[in-house]
Computed example of a mutant assay.
Amino acid sequence: MTDNPGDYDEVNVEVVDVMIKSNSDTGEGGWVSIGNINPGIYDLLELTGGISVILADNEVPSGHLGQMRLILGDENTVVKDGIIYPLRTPSAQQSGLKLQINQTLEPDFTYNFLLDFDVHNSVVVEAGNSGNYNLHPVIRVTTEVASGAIKGTVLPADVPTLASVVVNGVTVTAETNDIGVFQLNGIPSGTYSVTLTPDAASGLGVLVVDGVVVVNGQITDMGSLTLP
């Protein structure tokens, strides 16, 4: 989540949940929480210049993703000229801020959904003479595939083998299946060394393949790889 700044000292929004829906109908059925939420009060005006926060990070089913919505709490405020005002978000507190996604999510990839709150155009206005402010949010949603995958076939195919690659200091692993195929998922764009470690009982050696290039949104197929 990032922000396009407006004319306020602070615009504080309390996010309590992020939900998704597989279809695009306007009914209230079918919504589920993404889970692994980072709830909290976020000042949208701090999220500028490339600064963002992660609201949720979890696995979701592949297939069509119709909608997303943010569920807001009650601790929403605007600060203007040093004075704190309640920020009312009527639609968001009843049914959440609904965002149209309408995209097919392919399996085995990592997706980033960037929610850009456009505060300047969100018409944060004083509600009559009440002294309160209402938020009519304008949110731009962009989606990017943030990872690729590496696959290959290990020979001999009947030797159980562990494929591994180090990504930002973390080792990602995958076992071969009964025909020797492995796939390492969620690998960001870059160049990697893939290590193939066969079962010790096989008597075969470890194979390291350098210079494996990964492109976000694509599966790099290493082809057949024969253990030494």
Rank of each mutant, 00 (worst) to 15 (best):
4 N>F: 08
5 P>Q: 04
8 Y>W: 04
8 Y>H: 07
10 E>V: 03
13 V>D: 08
14 E>W: 02
14 E>R: 02
14 E>H: 00
16 V>F: 05
19 M>L: 12
22 S>H: 10
22 S>R: 08
23 N>P: 10
28 E>I: 07
30 G>E: 08
32 V>L: 10
32 V>A: 15
34 I>S: 10
35 G>M: 06
40 G>T: 04
40 G>V: 09
41 I>R: 00
41 I>C: 04
44 L>D: 09
44 L>M: 10
45 L>Q: 13
45 L>R: 07
49 G>C: 09
51 I>T: 14
53 V>R: 06
54 I>G: 11
54 I>Y: 06
57 D>V: 06
58 N>M: 03
58 N>C: 04
64 H>I: 10
67 Q>T: 15
69 R>C: 13
69 R>P: 15
74 D>V: 09
76 N>K: 04
76 N>C: 03
78 V>C: 13
79 V>A: 09
80 K>L: 12
84 I>H: 15
85 Y>R: 00
87 L>A: 09
87 L>I: 04
88 R>E: 15
89 T>L: 03
91 S>E: 13
93 Q>C: 12
93 Q>K: 13
95 S>G: 15
97 L>S: 11
99 L>K: 04
100 Q>I: 11
106 E>S: 11
107 P>C: 02
108 D>I: 05
111 Y>E: 11
111 Y>K: 01
112 N>Y: 13
115 L>P: 04
115 L>Q: 03
117 F>T: 12
124 V>N: 07
129 N>L: 14
131 G>V: 00
133 Y>T: 06
133 Y>K: 07
134 N>Q: 14
134 N>K: 11
134 N>S: 15
135 L>G: 06
137 P>Q: 09
137 P>D: 14
142 T>A: 15
142 T>H: 01
145 V>E: 11
151 K>A: 12
153 T>V: 08
155 L>D: 13
156 P>T: 05
157 A>I: 10
158 D>T: 14
160 P>F: 02
162 L>N: 13
167 V>L: 04
167 V>P: 07
168 N>E: 15
168 N>M: 11
171 T>C: 05
172 V>H: 06
173 T>W: 08
181 V>Y: 01
184 L>P: 00
185 N>T: 14
186 G>W: 01
189 S>G: 14
190 G>P: 00
190 G>N: 05
191 T>H: 06
192 Y>P: 00
193 S>G: 12
194 V>G: 03
195 T>I: 08
197 T>W: 02
199 D>Y: 05
200 A>C: 03
201 A>D: 14
203 G>I: 02
204 L>Y: 01
206 V>L: 06
206 V>M: 06
207 L>Q: 07
208 V>A: 14
209 V>G: 06
210 D>M: 08
215 V>P: 14
217 G>A: 01
217 G>Q: 02
219 I>N: 06
219 I>R: 00
220 T>R: 10
222 M>K: 03
225 L>S: 05
225 L>Y: 01
227 L>T: 05
